[in-house]
């Protein structure tokens, strides 16, 4: 079965209804396990107990970036293949991505105060994440302002793709501008810089955040499909 067979909303509703409870349960279990393991780690020799913020902060940032990537891919599919389901999926991902971005910024700020001595510093990654939040907000505002469903979806898709092309450039320019944030410490040549005892809870939390995102995403897509059906039925009755 190809993924495009799922593009039929009826089929999608059937399949997603089966998967959704499992994904949600898996998210709950991994998040719980990650939190327990995260609280059990020994305090870091430099950062003390605040290192535990990492388990909430880093996965949020990862999920926020993944959400933008998925949104851009769904937008491209919606724009090229004209699948209404892809349009719905792209639009449903945006508020989730914005929330995860905001979560990353807030937890980072809470971590930055004890570590760097300031709630906010104008460092490369913080700044590009703030810009990512504005990109999400612009996308949501544009989608909300255009009433026609089809037109709104296509306008949003173009914006998402323009943003996806521009994001690496923004990232690069902001890094060029200044950098204080810690460099890449996990996916690097020569293995991770983080002790394994910290790595396990981090991966569990990352998996939990990702599953949580997918569960919420499915719920939002399903809600939108039901809403559209209800609207169509109301219109049909009115005429």
């Amino acid at each position: 079965m190809s993924i495009f067979e799922l593009a039929n909303p009826k089929r999608f509703m059937q399949v997603s209804a089966v998967f959704l409870p499992w994904i949600a349960a898996a998210a709950a279990v991994t998040l719980a396990a990650g939190l327990v393991l995260g609280f059990a780690v020994p305090p870091d020799y430099q950062q003390g107990t605040t290192v535990r913020i990492m388990f909430l902060h880093v996965p949020a940032a990862w999920t926020a970036m993944m959400a933008y990537g998925l949104m851009a891919v769904a937008s491209a599919i919606g724009l090229i293949n004209r699948h209404p389901l892809a349009d719905v999926a792209a639009k449903a991902a945006a508020p989730l991505g914005a929330v995860f971005t905001a979560l990353g910024l807030v937890t980072g700020s809470l971590w930055g105060k004890p570590m760097w001595g300031a709630w906010w510093v104008w460092d490369g990654r913080l700044t590009s994440f703030l810009l990512l939040l504005f990109l999400y907000l612009g996308y949501i505002a544009l989608g909300g302002a255009i009433e026609d469903e089809n037109r709104s979806a296509r306008a949003c898709a173009i914006l998402a793709i323009v943003g996806a092309v521009n994001l690496p450039i923004i990232e690069f320019s902001v890094d060029w501008w200044t950098t204080l944030h810690q460099g890449e410490s996990i996916l690097r040549k020569g293995g991770p810089l983080i002790a394994p005892v910290f790595l396990w809870p981090l991966f569990l939390m990352a998996l939990g955040y990702t599953l949580l995102f997918f569960a919420l995403w499915l719920v939002r897509i399903r809600t939108e499909i039901v809403n559209r059906r209800a609207r169509t039925l109301t219109m049909a009755r009115a005429t």
Binding site: L131, L132, F134, L135, L137, G138, A141, L142, A145, L159, V162, G163, N166, I169, I170, F172, S173, V174
Partner: peptide, 12 residues
Amino acid sequence: ILPLIVLPLLAP
């Protein structure tokens, strides 16, 4: 809406 869309893209 225009500035919200355009300004982040003009950061570079």
